[in-house]
């Protein structure tokens, strides 16, 4: 079990305090293994987003430990958390994932710039990954000139381009129609199979769960079930 990418031990998250305190997560134990294609489901308010934020080093637990690739989040500064996200995690959010003043390619190159990559290599990798997600010929469009599904593909491409250990997607298909949803899930599934990228996807969408290889169900801040499929 030491080869887990992320492991959560007794993770609780409490928002607010006193009477108004909300227990978003209660004593969650979870391990994400390399190659996982996991879906995280549960009713609204059950703590999906909160848990994904922990796994992605966006937030730190109120108690318990989150260890990402050997590093305990509790011991890291803000800047170190930033570095951890930059190097190990890719994110796909529900919407407004892209920087509006940058073109599709520039959005991807931006992350590579943060990594300190040379211009030539940046361009090459951005072009390649955009082809990979089926956006050849749209490299120079700004987000406003892309459809919702295309924007999400750019977001997936950006999450993948720096070859992170894990990609987290929080309701990536919530704003998409069913056909585009299907395409996006297919894309992520293919990338998981072909490149071995680990995915954890928070979702309500049955079309997403269809491809799931591991299904985690949250209820009231606790893991209600965690089963591998197939």
């Amino acid at each position: 079990m030491t080869d887990a990418i992320v492991s959560c031990r007794g993770v609780s998250k409490i928002f607010g305090s006193g009477e108004l305190a909300v227990h978003a997560l209660r004593e969650v134990d979870l391990e994400i293994l390399p190659g996982d294609f996991a879906t995280l489901a549960g009713p609204s308010g059950s703590g999906k987003t909160t848990l994904l934020n922990m796994i992605g080093a966006l937030d730190t637990p109120s108690s318990g430990h989150v260890v990402i690739d050997g590093q305990d989040l509790g011991s890291l500064s803000k800047a170190q958390l930033s570095d951890l996200r930059l190097n190990k995690v890719g994110f796909v959010f529900q919407a407004y994932n892209l920087i509006p003043v940058l073109s599709a390619r520039e959005n991807i190159e931006f992350v590579l710039e943060l990594h300190g990559l040379e211009r030539g290599e940046r361009r090459q990798r951005a072009t390649d990954i955009l082809r990979e997600v089926g956006l050849e010929g749209m490299e120079d469009r700004r987000p406003a000139q892309l459809s919702g599904g295309q924007q999400q593909r750019v977001a997936v491409a950006r999450a993948l381009v720096s070859r992170p250990r894990i990609v987290l997607a929080d309701e990536p298909t919530a704003n998409l129609d069913s056909r585009t949803t299907g395409e996006l899930v297919q894309l992520m599934y293919r990338l998981n199979r072909e490149m071995g990228t680990t995915f954890v996807i928070g979702t309500h969408d049955p079309r997403v769960m269809e491809h799931s290889k591991r299904h985690i169900e949250l209820l009231d801040g606790r893991i209600a079930s965690d089963e591998r499929i197939g």
């Binding site: 992605g56 966006l58 803000k78 800047a79 930033s82 570095d83 951890l84 996200r85 930059l86 190097n87 995690v89 994110f91 959010f93 407004y96 994932n97 920087i99 509006p100 931006f110 992350v111 943060l114 950006r158």
Partner: peptide, 12 residues
């Protein structure tokens, strides 16, 4: 947007 940039790993 600033939150997004930080989520992507841009330091404050």
């Amino acid at each position: 947007e600033f939150g997004l940039l930080q989520a992507l790993g841009m330091k404050p």
